[in-house]
Design a protein around this nucleic acid. Structure first.
Lengths: 144, 144
DNA sequence: CTAAATGCAAACGATTTGCAGCCCC
DNA sequence: GGGGCTGCAAATCGTTTGCATTTAG
């Protein structure tokens, strides 16, 4: 059996982990790089990517994509959904009440094994769409 | 008022649109390029991208992202969900029964305007996970 | 005719990788 | 003190863009 790789706790890893802890703004690698650089001015972007990758593999972080090509990192591990503002691009954690649980039974019967599911909601957030009339909330809604 | 741009129906646009019609395999731009090249051998990748962009803007196509950095194109416009196989990478259209409609009322009350929502399910498809025991379907499920 | 669309190639942005030196364990 | 980790820079990958030329209307 191959020997397990001893992972080291480096200064960089510690600072990167601390920089995202409790952050609900869904920062990109670049965002995190800029933050971390204030503490470790000589850190490289590559190191940030490598450590983020490691934190994701260790299950300390989620890596998410919201329709552009940029990965976002999220330290919130418990179940929650995401609202993406089409105006300002901000991503907010939201919790959509589901009636109990969605019915995946049909899929399981077809032989699918379900590991995770994610719900992304797109629209205009309360900051960007101030006096939008909220009378017909579902108007024009499209699922995709 | 500025004059509306007259869009032209080119041979390339027609062939590209035909190449994705009724396709449920969620091809990438590259995939589509390879198909179209059999009919128009001199077409360039750039033209494929430009026309896909136009078809998306015209509402003929959806552009989707499934966790890698590659855009996928989907001609199915009506409501459906996506299952992404973590083993083979294939994306299948699925329909998850929801209990009526999910409750977005709370979000609307907070001032969010909802335009669309998408549900992505990750796991192992029936092709890849043959004799998986289906007794505990929700085992280890994680929402993200 | 003439502006929109094409083909080509160079530019781009996010991410990955190869490598010599560094520094945790 | 040895191997994993770093910083740096070059490489990669998907996508976009500038420009001279072609082509639809």
């Amino acid at each position: 059996m191959e020997r397990a790789i001893r992972q080291r706790i480096t200064q960089q890893l510690t600072v990167i982990a601390a920089a995202i802890e409790g952050d609900h703004t869904h920062p990109s690698a670049e965002d995190i790089y800029l933050r971390v650089r204030k503490i470790l001015p000589h850190i490289s972007l590559g190191t940030v990517y490598r450590n983020l990758q490691r934190l994701v593999q260790d299950g300390a972080l989620q890596m998410l994509f919201f329709g552009d090509r940029t990965a976002r990192y999220d330290p919130t591990l418990e179940a929650h959904d995401h609202f993406i503002c089409q105006q300002c691009g901000r991503v907010e954690d939201v919790k959509v009440e589901r009636d109990r649980r969605m019915d995946f039974a049909a899929l399981v019967r077809e032989g699918f094994t379900i590991a995770a599911h994610s719900l992304a909601i797109r629209g205009v957030c309360h900051r960007c769409g101030p006096r939008q009339d909220a009378a017909s909330p579902d108007k024009g809604e499209r699922r995709h």
